[in-house]
Structures are given as C-alpha cells and as structure tokens.
Design a protein around this nucleic acid. Structure first.
Length: 388
DNA sequence: TCTGGGGTCCTAGGACCC
DNA sequence: TCTGGGGTCCTAGGACCC
C-alpha cells in the first residue's frame, strides 16, 4: 500500500520572517542577503522577484534592478524561531512522523490522517491557510507516494501552491519537466545529460543508454527509481546530529597578506570551537579550504589521534596546513571545518584505558594522552608560522 | 564590482593490514 | 621466473542543495 507523503516548503522564508518582525515591510521589494561589496541575495520577496531579482544574485546587481530595494542582513536566530514554530505546529496538527529537510522544509508521513479523511485536498488547503493565518507563513505543499515526488510537487507551484503527483499520471506531469529541474541534477550534470539526448525527466525515467549510466555512476539507479515513482517513502524522524561544523569567510578584497590571513584563521577557529562546544561535539579531523582569486578551491585536512574542540588546537593545525600548502597567490576565501565528530562526553571513556591490561604505567598513559593533545599548545608567534 | 556561507554525499587513489 | 585480493582509513576534489 502506498504511503501519502507531504513536502511542505516555506515560500521566501527569510524575507517572510523579516516581514513578520516588521509588518511595514509587507508588499515591498525586499531581500535578505549580504550588504558588503561581495554580498549576494539569499532570499528575495516576491515583490523583489518582479524586478528580476533572485537568490545568488550579487546584491549590487539587485540594487541596480530596483533602486529602492530594502536590504536586510540575515538574522538566523529569528529564522530558527519561526522554523521551530512551523515544525511544531505540523507535528502537533498533522503527524509527528516529520523529517526536517532544512530550515524551511520538511517531509511528513500523512498516510494516516489523509486515509481517514473524506476530502484530503480540502484538508491540505485548510492546512496551508491555517499556517498562513496562525503563524503568518506561506508555504507550498507537495503530495506524492515518495519523498522525491512530494518534493518535486511542492516545487511545481509557488507561492501557496498545492500539487499532487500520482504514480499513474507521471507521464503527463513530472516526466514533461526539463531535466535540469530534477532534484539532484545540477548545473554540471544537466548539460552533459542534454548532450546524451536526455532532455526531460521522462527521458531519464525511460533511458537504457549505457553512456547515461556511466555518467551518473551509482546515482543512475537512484535517479531512475525516483523518476519512476519507486524512490524512498521512509520519513525519518531524527534529532539532527551534525557531521561537520565549519565556518568560512570571504575577504572584502583578495589578499596574500600573512597577518590578515592568520587573523582570519584565528577568528574562524574560534567560531568553530565555540559552536562545537555549544553542541557538545569534538572532532578528530581539521580541514581548511583556501579559495584563490581564480575561484580555485584547495582543501587540506589532518586527522589527529584525539578529537578536540579546543580553539588553539584548531588554529594551530589550520595554520600548519596553510603553511604547508599555500601557494603565494591572492586568496578570496578561507574556511575551517571540524569533521569526524563525536560527543564530547565520550572523551571521558578514554579514561577507561586504565581498566585495560595496558603494560604502561598510569603515568605513562597520562603522559601519552597529554602529548597527543594540544590543549596547552606552544605559544604561537606569527613569525614562527611563516614559511621562510 | 561577478559569483556567500552553511552543509551532505560520492568518487577515487594510496597507505596499511591480514 | 616480478609482484593476489580483500577491507578500512585517510585525503582531495567535486556536485549538489538551501
């Protein structure tokens, strides 16, 4: 028996939150995004979209399109607040079988509610209207037998759309869409599929071309399943447990200045450390990313013997990675990420080493543990970290 | 004045172990 | 009489999504 999955997607969410905080913004062209010279649009209100403004567009371009554009810098505390209200409302009023997909979208297994409802479409329309009235947020709702179909359906009509994708109707609905609109197919893969004569989702659903299989690798089967209505229908209720914690920042102007670069690494390391501590996480791998002025990205990482969330340890390792790998060219962006996360509490378990049959004395074990950790690293002078 | 910042997942090669 | 075949971990790069 098929399930009934809903995908609920908030429309222009960040902009909508700004309007809720300040109702005088309603009906005006508004964006949430960076204000600096390298800022980009994160979310545009529907009024701003009429000017041709869209997300990922440089802010200065948006202003050129609409000189009286209102610009707000992102406030994630505000967005998380409304996001929680939204999820909790759905858990309480539709079903607790809810999977958070991102800050502004989720899947719900609504099989039960809708099966015993005589008029499911009206139920969903009412849900949409109630969310708008009670919380003040507009959403699009997609309905389908799998998560993929529900996701594609919610995307079909915005804002305030309701779309249903039924398996038996795919040939005259989903399959007609261009291949670049398929979830999981981005700007690198779409052109390559077009070259192989895969122009629509239907083409992909039906193809047996080995060249397509070669191009998509393991994902070939996943995508074909999705397109044929055979994808996953498991809505996974779980606490979000981050797999990595990272911060990155773009310089106002590209730079090769060592003081500027190390100062940013220091700041990023502090941010990562603070977030990891707040989440109660430690990580054993420290990764840096260097984006050069050419947009070339270089990642370097190191795995330590012992996980950490100590700011100085992260900074020290980040600088070592940088020194070993930097080619003396202007940088655009730097990033620091902590990976291979585990719970901070599990650090304590390492003390159970004492209970084991170690031939080392306790003092030796303790000494080794201390040596592996940089919790009191050597004092670092910038000059010590320089290559020459 | 082109192009943010937060992530996840996949691939592929090499080291290392048995 | 050239050098098997796994499994796992680490590292680097890239695609994709919101």
């Amino acid at each position: 028996m098929s399930k009934i999955i809903l995908h609920v997607d908030l429309n222009a969410f960040f902009a909508a939150c700004e309007v809720l905080r300040n109702p005088t913004l309603r009906g005006k062209p508004l964006i949430v995004g960076g204000i600096g010279r390298r800022g980009i649009v994160s979310t545009a209100s529907y009024e701003a979209r009429k000017y041709g403004i869209h997300s990922a567009m440089p802010t200065y371009q948006a202003i050129r399109l609409c000189p009286n554009l209102i610009i707000k810098e992102p406030d994630f505390k505000l967005y998380h607040h409304y996001s929680s209200l939204f999820f909790n409302y759905l858990k309480d009023h539709v079903s607790p079988i809810l999977e958070v997909a991102s800050i502004d979208e989720c899947y719900i297994d609504a099989t039960e509610v809708l099966r015993r409802n005589r008029d499911p479409v009206t139920y969903i329309k009412n849900l949409q209207q109630t969310l708008l009235k009670e919380i003040g947020l507009a959403c699009s709702i997609g309905v389908g037998p799998t998560k993929f179909l529900a996701k594609m359906a919610s995307n079909y009509r915005k804002p305030l759309g309701i779309t249903i994708y039924r398996r038996r109707e795919l040939a005259k609905t989903l399959w007609l869409l261009p291949i670049n609109e398929m979830y999981g197919i981005g700007k690198a893969t779409a052109p390559r599929l077009l070259k192989l004569n895969i122009n629509t989702i239907g083409d992909l659903a039906k193809t047996e071309d080995p060249a397509v299989k070669q191009l998509l690798g393991k994902s070939y089967y996943t995508f074909k399943d999705w397109a044929n209505g055979r994808g996953s229908d498991e809505v996974i209720v779980e606490e979000e447990d981050p797999k990595s914690i990272g911060n990155s920042s773009t310089f106002m102007f590209d730079t090769d200045n060592y003081e500027e670069i190390s100062a940013l690494f220091k700041e990023l390391s502090n941010q990562v450390s603070e977030r990891a501590k707040r989440e109660g996480k430690v990580g054993s791998t420290i990764q840096i990313v260097m984006r050069y002025y050419t947009f070339e990205n270089v990642n370097r990482s190191i795995t330590l013997n012992k996980p950490t969330n100590n700011a100085l340890t992260i900074f020290y390792e980040a600088m070592k990675l940088f020194d070993r790998n930097y080619k003396d060219e202007p940088l655009r962006l730097l990033g620091v990420t902590l990976q291979n996360l585990s719970d901070e509490g599990s650090l304590v378990e390492q003390l159970s080493l004492f209970d084991d049959f170690s031939e080392k004395s306790k003092t030796e074990v303790i000494r080794d543990l201390l040596n592996e950790e940089y919790d009191s690293p050597p004092f670092i002078r910038l000059s010590d970290l320089r290559k020459d």
